[in-house]
Design a protein around this nucleic acid. Structure first.
Lengths: 344, 344
DNA sequence: ATAGATATCTAGATCGATCTAAAGGCTGAA
DNA sequence: TTCAGCCTTTAGATCGATCTAGATATCTAT
């Protein structure tokens, strides 16, 4: 048995209460300046008295602007994305836009479903971190889509906000080399991820720059999770000669690696050096040396790109690549005594 | 210069293309069975050919159902909430509902803004984890609100899905006592948070049950973050006699505490026992003994409560309290040698 | 006094779907 | 033949706002 709720208070109710027309009430609601102060006041009083609630849905139907932005990420539980989400939501919120969230769990079918659902909404635009492998296959060919901006991972044919990953891991390698490390591993990060490829190539470039030989066993591929980092470091330690430092695909992987180190009685920074990637909030608390990719800034940049694209759909494609920055904390340190040195 | 986009394909276009009326097309879209198979097929063909995109906004205006649910959390970057969000989003998504996300950062003003914005949308219902202190002051008195369900933290006058926190920390204490611990700290968790109060009272109840004296310095209040856990444990270790184990407000606090332990050369499970709360994904990877509050299940429960409330707004208030479960991993262990024992 | 400019307000169409109530066609029973 | 009953389809009103184009009143300058 559905309890019948009281009928909605509409513009018409306000209008007749305030003795003006619907149109005038609408002008007041939208803060259009052409309304006489006295009228505005009268209308606002009626709005308060009758407890009027604005109906965005009705407004958007007519104005063709929903003031909703779709946000599709591949994994909310990844703190890097969580920080981006917060930043985007704040940024858009202060621009009067609502964020509709979707999580793909790296599932392409789910991504297509979300794109569709948000287009139907219809969202005024969509921010997306494409699932692994959808960078090329990308957009569904179905119906028309609203303006789209990709972040963190590029996508064919749309604007993009990302990080200079190559430079990032190059910085990491240089830092480690400066501390005396020579055998440096690169761990975590599925090879099919563009960002992993870029970070890997920066890692290689860093090695080359210092005439260090790249050895393929030092690249330990794993899931970009805490668990992945854990297992990756354990494999790395079994190599002979073992590496003395590692550049991690991201901070979460780095924490997993630190977990593994400690499980074997090694102290990060002293017995083995670890560099993370992203500089999530926990990185500071965990004293992790890392490459700061300023997730919040990235989110805001992507949001700005989208707002511009919405404003001017015809403008040429844009890419904004943010520069990363090394943040030195306690998980890296001078190479002490390299037990493998004598073996070589 | 706004590039004028091609005009939208509407029901009317499909109707004239397929040689039927708008109403019939609508019936096809909504899978109403009364449409003749041949007609349905013809309409679907037109829909595909013209690349029609359904307009939910228009539909909801008329049907008075937006198929959107507002989800307000206090901190997305907290993995506990992130897991809940994913679960809710999945659950509602499979019921054909879209999730609109909002993050309050424990800010009451922002919570009010979000409640308002979602009411205006209008969302069909709202799931909320109230900010600290809004449990009583709660709902804005402004306009009408859609059905609301609170989770994790109760809120006056609305349905609630939560955890039996008292039993949870009681389980934790019993586990530690069983391992021989006598001086057990309770760390993290702001005292004004209902869940912290409940967990604290379960802690005390656990102590009483085993005739262990409660000493107030063993309750170390801190922010419920990794950093909070870190600092809390350091303070706890400075007590004399120092505790040998700690029940943490949540898993993140526990990780911070472990961080602190290791920074002082102590190994969790061997030199000091730590119990977390919630059993987030990282707890497994980090071998953390914890109280499993099944965040995903909690999210789904809350979502179900909301769906029922929407279906039947007049039904009596409901509360669902899930029972927690102890998960033993490696961060707890038998009390070895208690260096303080002799001092007493 | 009159035309023109300015400020303020409004009627009515409109956005794109759903809903209601009923129409048309067909079947089988009386 | 006629009519009730079923199946399928539809015209037109409707949801609650915005937009357009113009009306009305007030003021200024000549």
């Amino acid at each position: 048995m559905l309890a019948s709720s009281p009928p909605r208070v509409t513009l018409l109710d306000i209008a007749s209460d305030a003795g003006v027309s619907r149109a005038t009430v609408s002008l007041v609601l939208r803060n259009v300046p052409s309304v006489a102060p006295a009228t505005r006041k009268r209308v606002l009083q009626s709005i308060n008295r009758l407890r009027y609630v604005y109906h965005r849905g009705a407004a958007s139907l007519r104005s063709q602007r929903s003031h909703a932005i779709g946000l599709i990420v591949s994994d909310i539980t990844n703190p890097f994305f969580a920080e981006i989400i917060v930043a985007i939501e704040d940024w858009l919120g202060s621009a009067g836009l609502v964020t509709i969230l979707g999580n793909t769990s790296e599932n392409l079918a789910k991504q297509q479903r979300l794109l569709r659902s948000m287009s139907e909404y219809p969202a005024d635009g969509i921010l997306i971190c494409p699932t692994q492998g959808s960078e090329k296959t990308g957009l569904p060919t179905g119906g028309r889509l609203p303006p789209i901006v990709a972040f963190t991972r590029p996508m064919d044919g749309v604007d993009y906000a990302g990080t200079d990953n190559v430079t990032g891991s190059e910085l990491a390698v240089e830092h480690l080399v400066g501390l005396g490390h020579r055998r440096i591993a690169f761990i975590g990060g599925p090879a099919q991820l563009t960002s992993a490829q870029q970070r890997f190539s920066g890692y290689r470039r860093g090695l080359e720059k210092h005439a260090l030989e790249y050895r393929k066993e030092l690249f330990v591929e794993q899931l970009p999770t805490r668990q992945g980092g854990y297992h990756a470091l354990i494999s790395a330690l079994q190599l002979s000669p073992a590496p003395t430092a590692a550049v991690c695909f991201n901070d979460v992987v780095a924490f997993g690696a630190i977990e593994a180190l400690r499980g074997r009685g090694k102290e990060p920074g002293r017995d083995f050096s670890i560099v993370g990637f992203n500089n999530i909030a926990d990185a500071r608390a965990g004293s992790l040396t890392t490459i700061d990719t300023s997730p919040a800034k990235l989110g805001e940049t992507a949001a700005d790109l989208l707002l511009n694209r919405i404003r001017d759909p015809g403008s040429p494609l844009r890419q904004v690549i943010l520069s990363p920055r090394l943040v030195v904390r306690e998980s890296t340190g001078k190479l002490q005594h390299d037990s493998n040195e004598s073996n070589q």
